[in-house]
Design a protein around this nucleic acid. Sequence first.
DNA 1: TCGTCGAATGTGAACAGTCACATGACTGCG
DNA 2: CGCAGTCATGTGACTGTTCACATTCGACGA
Lengths: 348, 348
Amino acid sequence: MADDDTGGDATPFELPPGRAASIRDVARVAGVSYQTVSRVVNDHPSIRPETKQRVLDAMEQLQYRPNRAARMLVTSRSKTFGILTSNRHHYGPATSIRAIEEAAQESGYSVVTKNLTATDDASIVQALDHLADQAVEGLVIIAPQVRVLTAIERLSLRVPYVTLQSTGEAGSHALSIDQVAGARLVTRHLIELGHRSIYHLAGPQDWIEAEARMRGFLAEMSDNDVPTTAPILGDWTADFGYRAGRELLRFRDFTAIFSSNDQMALGLLHAVREAGLDCPRDISIVGFDDIPEAAHFAPPLTTIRQDFAEIGRRCVALLFAQLEGRDADLPAIEPTLLVRSSTARPAF
Amino acid sequence: MADDDTGGDATPFELPPGRAASIRDVARVAGVSYQTVSRVVNDHPSIRPETKQRVLDAMEQLQYRPNRAARMLVTSRSKTFGILTSNRHHYGPATSIRAIEEAAQESGYSVVTKNLTATDDASIVQALDHLADQAVEGLVIIAPQVRVLTAIERLSLRVPYVTLQSTGEAGSHALSIDQVAGARLVTRHLIELGHRSIYHLAGPQDWIEAEARMRGFLAEMSDNDVPTTAPILGDWTADFGYRAGRELLRFRDFTAIFSSNDQMALGLLHAVREAGLDCPRDISIVGFDDIPEAAHFAPPLTTIRQDFAEIGRRCVALLFAQLEGRDADLPAIEPTLLVRSSTARPAF
DNA sequence: TCGTCGAATGTGAACAGTCACATGACTGCG
DNA sequence: CGCAGTCATGTGACTGTTCACATTCGACGA
């Protein structure tokens, strides 16, 4: 049953050196038609196990690799998602990206990330353009989202997209992680400790999560009838936190600061120390994100932990849902409060 | 001159809804052959400016986008580089990745990053496989490099690759950033301050840069006839630094520690503080990398700054050099020492 | 005046897959 | 015993682009 194949003679079949094996080469070696090989590759049900094995062997022998380009061309599906990110070295985004990559790959998708260097409209458009060139089938946006969103509208990209954080308004585009709830959580923690004058060091306001955290802060404060001052708009960096802290400490008309992320909180801590004050004795500071370093700050930072990996996974799930035209309604992920040593009752 | 085109009548030419415009559609609208359109796209020299404009207009009108897949198929060039990374959220790698993406894109290349979750051989092979599926033309490796390198050998990948850090030995594959020099720099700094018992908290030894930094440390120590103890092998995390610090402080038979990266130094700082000691009065600590947060540690960290962006750019340059078969000999980048407040003369 | 050259453009065939349809063999049923 | 139906496999056409090779046309030198 084995020696009836076409020309099963001494020629071990070698292909021209430069070229990689194609489906047809495999077919020839296995003694079947190229279509059969294609069926094996896509494991079509009706194929004899014996034939399948023969094809598999041939593939092994020729080191066959399906050609993505050809498949992409004919199916006009790139099996690629794009991620638009701007500060990827931040812990949260980076963790999510990793999870996205993994989840995507499980479904045979790959991921192209594009970094936004500047946040002006021109570079946003250029970045989206680049992603469009890759024929991405879906988009995850971890960037100054409001601007990107309008750019997408303007370019009339016909691609499903997901923003990493809840917009509070949008339907299937936004991932409902309750940033607002997280912000309320830390704020309540401070209030319960007895703080009555609390500053908020916010993130850039074109970031939806920055805006959501700020909303949560303001809501919790007003719910508890604590008067608020205008939030300070930062840029996520420790440097900014430091400078803001120095500025703030010139007056010292507060007992606590809620920083919209952990990096800025680090800068704040630095400024407090430099002013000869002690956190948490004189001033309580809380962060947001729980980066792996936060536990080793001086003092270890009270913060909000978010499950960034889970967020990433959900991004992919949502994208697939949109691709398949169904509505995936994922329950919101609840952030958790991590009380460490940077918060205490106010001194007076 | 404008109304002599073929059939410039009332049909505005619309293509079947689902399909995107192809080179042939553009050709029809512009009244030229598809080859001419192809020439315009690749800006071939001999094409009449007038014709070119007509084609350009048609492209604009149809919102034409060249189809990557088709081009890839026929040229068998993916115009894609792969990055294999393992701890991308670390500042250094992340910064380099961004620079790589940018530099690549300038030459019309895109970048696919693949994250290594586990560092066992199986997942390395799987990751390389995934990258190979994308038909990447070059590879940048930011990962436990020695293992990856052997995996590449074993898979007989015929792709030029660059490792982010100097191996000290390899030729054109390795990027010569002088890790050894950097390590010598900090070590000398400590020695010059008067330290004679210095511990080294190293990175995982399958990371080439970890190994190089350790080599630099040992070399500088022995050059100055300072006796050394065996380096402690860490995992780059602040958590590890903290635990190692606690362990080390039980004996306190040293006056300084050189940590192979800033994160571990942060953990060390934490342990020192917790032991009721002061850095730098009791113990000096130095890091490596100069992450943006290092300036805000308690105390601000003395460390080695590396130009990660420049490294990224060079990766791409090297890759192109390898692709074109020429030898690019880039001068090494010299790291610089940043003295902040975590180092001082030893107390006794 | 004619062949030659180069510029500008067109034609056919590849590239490596998938899809729709066709074919042949075998099974089960009336 | 013939016919329908399924299983296993094969054939031809098509995807959007580039490459190698025509073809046309005007200019120019012999």
